Simulated assay, not measured.
Amino acid sequence: MTCTENWSSCNGFLLLVLALLAIAFNLTPLVADYVEDGRPFYSPISCYEWWLPGLVGGGLLVLPAVSMTLAARKKGSCNSRGGMLSSSLLCVISIIGSAYCTLISIYAISKGPLICEKGSNTLEHCDYTLGNLSNIESLTFDLGWFLNETCLPTPPADANSTVFAREKLPDFVLDFEINERSQKIIHLTAFVGLAIVGLLEAIVAISQIVAGLFGFLCGTSKKNRRNTDGNQNYGYESQ
């Protein structure tokens, strides 16, 4: 194997690990929602978890580059100039996915969990649109929602207090409750992890673009079987 193929092998393995981590981080709040309520789409910790930054951006959009990168370093049909170039092109899609993963995660971190931002965990309060993503310059990274003891307003002392309490904490169908502090920890852990994973995926994808271009320009070592005067000869030649 040439240094380009070893380089690609390392990049492919790192991208695979990062993609699996992105999927795991994204599933964390989704699984917590389901365990708490016994049904999906009921009381999200954050609306941004349903934008699937880790499942789609850091996961599915990265896997094609992973498969081609790992295939391009093997002694097979993909181990060629064309395979190396294809791995570089697919890494462009990975960079787009990782950028989406990082951007959504940054927004989620700045906003905090839904219970801190809106005082409720109901889907009716998920009013986020793609237009919000264009206002990145207005984001502030004040983590007061995490550092403060509570981010919920004091419930009123009149008859409406019962309604407020019901909106604040939905009825649980399972004997499992995630309190406000736990929601904060899950939210911060999931989206900080996704932001870091997205940045690392972009760096590794850029590295593979460089490795793929070198492999395309310089060629790779591919094991070929040739017959010469009735004898089988095995050797490596540039493809």
Rank of each mutant, 00 (worst) to 15 (best):
D158N: 13
L143A: 03
I93N: 06
V56K: 05
G235C: 09
L143E: 06
T189E: 14
F176M: 12
Y236H: 12
C3K: 14
D33V: 08
E201C: 09
I186K: 00
F164N: 04
F172T: 01
L60V: 15
L143K: 06
N26V: 09
D37T: 07
K111P: 03
L89A: 12
A190S: 09
R181T: 06
L147F: 08
L194W: 03
F176W: 07
L123A: 14
R226P: 01
N233C: 13
L147P: 07
E5I: 15
L152E: 07
S98W: 05
G97V: 03
A72Y: 06
P156K: 11
S161F: 03
R166V: 06
G219R: 01
I95F: 12
T162K: 07
N233F: 06
F41R: 10
E124I: 01
L194F: 07
P170H: 02
Y236K: 11
G131W: 06
E237F: 10
N233E: 05
G230M: 13
I95G: 04
R225C: 11
A159G: 11
L18W: 04
F191P: 01
D229Y: 14
N121A: 06
D229C: 10
S110M: 01
C218F: 02
V210T: 12
P153W: 14
T162Y: 06
L15S: 08
Q239I: 13
P44N: 02
P29K: 01
F146C: 04
Q232L: 15
G212F: 00
G119R: 06
D171W: 12
L194N: 11
T162H: 11
G119E: 02
I196F: 09
D33C: 04
S9Y: 08
C91P: 12
R166A: 15
C78T: 15
R39K: 15
N160Y: 14
L15R: 05
Q208N: 02
E237I: 06
I106Q: 06
F141L: 06
S120W: 00
G219W: 02
A159R: 12
L52E: 00
C91I: 13
G144F: 03
F216E: 00
N132R: 03
I203T: 10
L89D: 13
L20F: 15
L123M: 15
I203L: 09
L20P: 04
S238F: 10
I136F: 00
Y48G: 00
A24R: 13
R39E: 15
I106W: 05
T140D: 04
L21M: 10
G198S: 05
G193T: 11
L123Q: 13
N233S: 03
N11A: 12
A19H: 07
T129C: 01
F141I: 08
P53H: 01
K184E: 07
G235V: 11
G131S: 10
Y48H: 08
S120M: 02
L199K: 01
P53E: 02
E149C: 07
Y128R: 00
A22Q: 03
T102W: 12
L55I: 13
S138D: 09
Y128D: 01
R73V: 05
